[in-house]
Computed example of a mutant assay.
Amino acid sequence: MDSVRKTIKGLKLAGLIAATLLVQACASNFTFQVEVDDPEPSTQHYVSSDQDTPTSLAFSHQIPGDQVSAKGGVLNYVYQQDKKNIDPATFFLGALSNELEARKLPVTFDDSASNQLQLLSFETISHRNNGFSPLVMIAMVKIDLVENGQKHRIAAIVKRAKVPIWTVTEEPLVEATINQPQEILIKEVAAKINLALFNDQLTDSDVDTLIKDVKANVENEDIAYQKVYELGFSNNPKALPALLEFSKHNAEYIRLAAISGMGMLGGEGVFEELKALYTSGNQWQDRAVALKAIGDIQTTEALDFLKTEQAKWSDKTTQEVTWNKKIVALYLD
C-alpha cells in the first residue's frame, strides 16, 4: 500500500512540474530576476617575450541603463546582485579589470586616455521551445578597441543550454547558462586585448597542463569545456593541435569551445578547416561557432566570407538565419 501511495504522490508531483513548465512555455512573456556571480578571474597569467608598454584606455559604452540582460520570445532575465539590478557596463568593466590584472596585462582605465575601449553591445539571447526543452542562452559581446587611431573589433559568443529541473531560475541553471558564459566572455575579451596590444602567451607548461586537464576530465564536460576555452585564449601555437583534435569531439561543449578558439589561435592557417566545419556541421551551434571563429581571423578574405553569407540570408527569416545575422553583425556592423 505504501508503494502505491508513493507512486501516486510521484505522479502528482511529476504532473505538477510538467504543468508548471507548460504554463511557463505557453505564456506570452515572463521576466525573471536572477542573482549572478562576479566572473572568476583566470589563475594562469600571460608571459611577455619582451617588455610590455603599459597602456591606458578610456572606457565608454552604448548599453542602455537598467536593460534586460537576456531577451527572448518567452523568457527574459534581469541580472541582479544582492537583489539589486546590475548596471551591465559597470559589471563588465569591473570583471574585465580583474581579468586583465589576473593575466598580468598592464592595462588601466582612464577617462582622459587617447586610446579607447568602446563597449558596443553586451547581451544574451534567451530561447526555449516548450516547457520540456532546454533553455538555450547565447551570450554575446561586441567591442571596438581603438589604439593609436587603429580600430580592432573584438567580439565573442558563448552558447549554453540546460533543461530546468524545477524552475527557470534555479541555481544550477543560472550557473550553467549565465555565470559560466559571462566568465568566458570576459576572459575572451581580455585575451583579444592581449592579442591587439601585447601578443603575450601562456607558457608551454601551462598549455600542457590545460591539455592534460581536459583529457583527465573528458567525462566531466562541465569542467573540460572551460579548459578548452583556456587553450584558445593561450595565444600559444602549441595549443592548436589540441584544439583541432577537440573540434571533432562528441561532447558538444568541448567541441564548440575548440572551434571557437581556432580562429584566434590559428588565424588564416585554419580558414579552410573552419569553412568546412561551417558547411558540414550537423548542428546549428557548430556552424554558428565556426562563423564566429572565421570572424576572429579578421583578414579581408575571412570578412568577405561573412559578408557573402550575410547576403544569402537577406530574404530569409528562419530562427537559424536570425541568430546567424546577429553573430555576423558582431564583426561587420
Rank of each mutant, 00 (worst) to 15 (best):
P39K: 01
P39S: 00
P41H: 06
P41Y: 04
S42F: 03
T43Q: 07
T43R: 12
T43L: 03
Q44G: 04
Q44M: 08
Y46S: 05
Y46L: 06
S49C: 03
S49L: 03
D52C: 13
D52R: 15
T53I: 08
P54Q: 02
S56R: 11
L57M: 06
A58V: 01
F59H: 08
H61W: 09
Q62R: 04
P64C: 07
P64R: 15
D66R: 13
Q67R: 08
Q67E: 11
V68T: 12
K71V: 10
L75Q: 13
Y77R: 14
Y77S: 12
V78G: 03
Q80L: 07
Q80P: 00
Q80K: 08
Q81L: 10
Q81F: 14
Q81N: 06
D82Y: 08
K83E: 12
K84W: 00
K84H: 01
K84I: 00
N85F: 04
I86L: 01
A89H: 05
T90D: 12
T90L: 13
T90V: 08
F92Y: 07
L93C: 10
S97D: 01
S97H: 02
S97C: 00
N98D: 08
E99F: 01
E99T: 04
E99R: 03
L100V: 04
E101S: 08
K104P: 11
L105M: 05
V107F: 04
V107S: 08
V107T: 02
F109V: 02
D110E: 08
A113C: 01
S114R: 11
N115C: 06
L117M: 09
L117F: 11
Q118R: 13
L120Y: 11
S121E: 09
F122D: 02
E123H: 00
E123R: 03
I125H: 09
H127A: 07
R128E: 06
N130I: 03
G131C: 12
G131Q: 13
G131I: 07
G131E: 12
F132H: 10
P134C: 10
P134S: 10
P134E: 09
L135S: 04
I138R: 15
I138S: 15
I138L: 15
A139F: 13
K142Q: 02
K142V: 03
I143K: 14
I143D: 10
I143G: 05
L145G: 11
L145V: 05
E147K: 15
E147D: 11
E147V: 10
E147Y: 15
N148H: 13
G149F: 13
Q150T: 12
Q150D: 11
R153C: 11
I154W: 07
I154N: 06
A155K: 07
A156W: 12
I157G: 09
K159N: 14
